[in-house]
């Protein structure tokens, strides 16, 4: 088995953004607490200086996942136009695309107000976020999306290890957006020699997920 390392990781939650264990943004307490998402995600976008017009078309799940992936790839100096054939993208969450599903449902709920929107419908699939991340970073390895009840480091690490039997690198992790709340942990996984890198294991994945900032 390969000696897999966590090459870089980021967190985006309702309250903070972190990269490789360092806090980079904290949401100001004055913002509305019950539906932090929309403003907060836009604020993150401008504060991290991301420039990606497709961002504005995305649903909130994809926005959160794409920004977290951006931070990770940026810290690896990998934001470029190069096609990366052997990078896998693996996404896990509990709600699938239910946040966007509910938005779409509102457009068809009654016969009187029936305006189904293809721009909303296209995001009603749990795996679109993995597609968005693959497109942004030109990742052409395997991509898959799994739905589980809660964050589970053993399940996520098992899937990464299986994918990395063939792929050289994996990008992804827990990308949850539900009822106005987001909870994202994205990591890049691969083989690396640098001594300071954390081993990729369920235990280490769990501790970087649990860390408070």
């Amino acid at each position: 088995m390969k000696n897999l390392k966590i090459l870089s990781y980021s967190r985006i939650t309702d309250d903070f953004v972190s990269l490789n264990g360092d806090l980079i943004l904290r949401r100001s307490a004055s913002d509305e607490p019950n539906n932090v998402a929309r403003h907060w995600l836009s604020e993150i976008y401008s504060k991290i200086g991301m420039e990606y017009p497709k961002f504005f078309k995305m649903d909130l799940l994809c926005k959160a996942g794409t920004m977290a992936a951006e931070l990770v790839m940026r810290s690896l100096n990998m934001v470029n136009d190069e096609v990366k054939e052997n990078w896998a993208v693996l996404c896990f969450n509990a709600a699938g695309s239910l946040d966007d599903d509910r938005t779409y449902q509102q457009t068809i709920q009654t016969k009187e107000n029936f305006f189904p929107s293809p721009a909303v419908f296209v995001y009603t699939l749990a795996n679109i976020v993995s597609g968005e991340i693959a497109i942004r970073h030109h990742l052409r390895g395997e991509s898959s999306c799994f739905v589980l009840e809660d964050f589970s480091a053993p399940v996520i690490s098992r899937a990464f290890e299986d994918a990395l039997d063939t792929a050289d690198f994996g990008l992804g992790g827990w990308i949850e957006f539900d009822k106005g709340h987001c909870d994202v942990l994205i990591c890049a996984v691969g083989t690396g020699n640098q001594a300071e890198l954390t081993d990729f294991s369920a235990e280490n994945l769990n501790s970087i997920y649990q860390k408070k900032y």
């Binding site: 699938g96 699939l125 749990a126 795996n127 679109i128 993995s130 991509s143 898959s144 999306c145 799994f146 739905v147 589980l148 009840e149 589970s152 399940v155």
Partner: peptide, 8 residues
């Protein structure tokens, strides 16, 4: 715990 794959 079952696995759910939702990949369109």
């Amino acid at each position: 715990e079952p696995i759910v794959v939702s990949n369109a």
